[in-house]
Amino acid sequence: GIPATNLSRVAGLEKQLAIELKVKQGAENMIQTYSNGSTKDRKLLLTAQQMLQDSKTKIDIIRMQLRRALQ
């Protein structure tokens, strides 16, 4: 079985993952909103794209940590 310490770690990672998935969803929504907007929305679009990139990276890292914890 999986050690108890790993189980609480997994629960924490799953919570983090859920949050990051919401951030990713929000960033994707912002990108959709701003991509057909005016030029003043360009900065917001770039910010949203950066957020999305960061979020995807975090999600990958969390998933990797989850896999390790579940081994």
Rank of each mutant, 00 (worst) to 15 (best):
G1A: 10
G1V: 12
G1W: 09
I2M: 10
I2C: 15
P3I: 06
A4T: 10
A4K: 13
A4P: 08
T5S: 09
T5Q: 10
T5L: 12
N6V: 08
N6R: 10
N6I: 11
N6T: 06
N6H: 13
N6D: 10
L7T: 09
L7I: 09
L7A: 14
L7Y: 03
S8G: 09
S8N: 09
R9A: 08
R9S: 10
R9P: 05
R9H: 11
R9G: 06
V10Q: 03
V10L: 07
V10G: 03
A11H: 06
A11C: 15
A11V: 07
A11K: 10
G12M: 15
G12H: 15
G12Q: 15
G12V: 15
L13W: 04
L13N: 00
E14R: 15
K15V: 05
K15W: 07
K15L: 10
K15A: 10
K15F: 07
Q16K: 09
L17C: 07
L17F: 01
L17V: 01
A18D: 05
A18S: 06
A18T: 04
I19C: 12
E20I: 07
E20M: 14
L21T: 03
K22M: 10
V23M: 05
V23C: 09
K24M: 13
K24D: 00
K24A: 08
Q25S: 07
Q25I: 07
Q25Y: 06
Q25P: 00
G26V: 15
G26S: 14
A27Q: 02
A27W: 15
A27N: 02
A27T: 03
A27G: 01
E28K: 04
E28Q: 06
E28F: 04
E28W: 07
E28M: 10
E28R: 05
N29R: 12
N29Y: 11
N29S: 09
M30S: 03
M30A: 07
M30K: 04
I31G: 01
I31P: 00
I31F: 02
Q32Y: 10
Q32I: 11
Q32R: 09
Q32V: 10
Q32W: 10
T33R: 14
T33V: 12
Y34F: 07
S35R: 10
N36M: 06
N36R: 07
G37T: 06
G37V: 05
S38E: 13
S38M: 08
T39R: 05
T39G: 09
T39I: 08
T39P: 07
T39F: 08
T39Q: 12
K40F: 13
K40P: 07
K40E: 11
D41M: 03
D41C: 08
D41K: 02
D41E: 05
R42G: 09
R42D: 14
K43A: 14
K43C: 14
L44S: 04
L44P: 02
L44F: 06
L44E: 05
L45V: 04
L45P: 00
L45M: 05
L45G: 01
L46T: 05
L46C: 11
L46S: 05
L46K: 08
L46N: 04
T47F: 13
T47C: 15
T47E: 14
T47V: 14
A48D: 00
A48R: 00
A48P: 00
Q49F: 12
Q49D: 01
Q50F: 04
Q50G: 03
Q50W: 05
Q50K: 12
M51H: 04
L52A: 02
L52H: 02
L52T: 01
Q53V: 09
Q53I: 09
Q53F: 07
Q53K: 12
D54N: 09
D54M: 07
D54C: 11
D54V: 13
D54W: 05
D54E: 12
S55A: 13
S55G: 01
S55M: 02
S55V: 13
K56D: 04
K56C: 13
K56V: 10
K56I: 15
K56M: 13
T57E: 12
K58S: 03
K58F: 02
K58M: 05
K58D: 01
I59V: 03
I59W: 01
I59F: 00
I59Y: 01
D60T: 13
I61F: 12
I61V: 06
I61L: 11
I61D: 09
I62M: 02
I62H: 01
R63K: 08
R63D: 02
R63T: 05
M64R: 12
M64F: 07
Q65N: 05
Q65C: 12
L66M: 03
L66G: 00
L66V: 02
L66Y: 01
L66F: 01
L66W: 01
L66I: 14
L66C: 02
R67E: 06
R67T: 07
R67K: 08
R67H: 09
R67I: 09
R67Q: 08
R67S: 07
R67C: 13
R67F: 12
R68S: 09
R68V: 13
R68Y: 11
R68L: 14
A69L: 15
A69S: 04
A69P: 02
L70V: 06
L70S: 05
Q71N: 08
Q71T: 08
Q71Y: 06
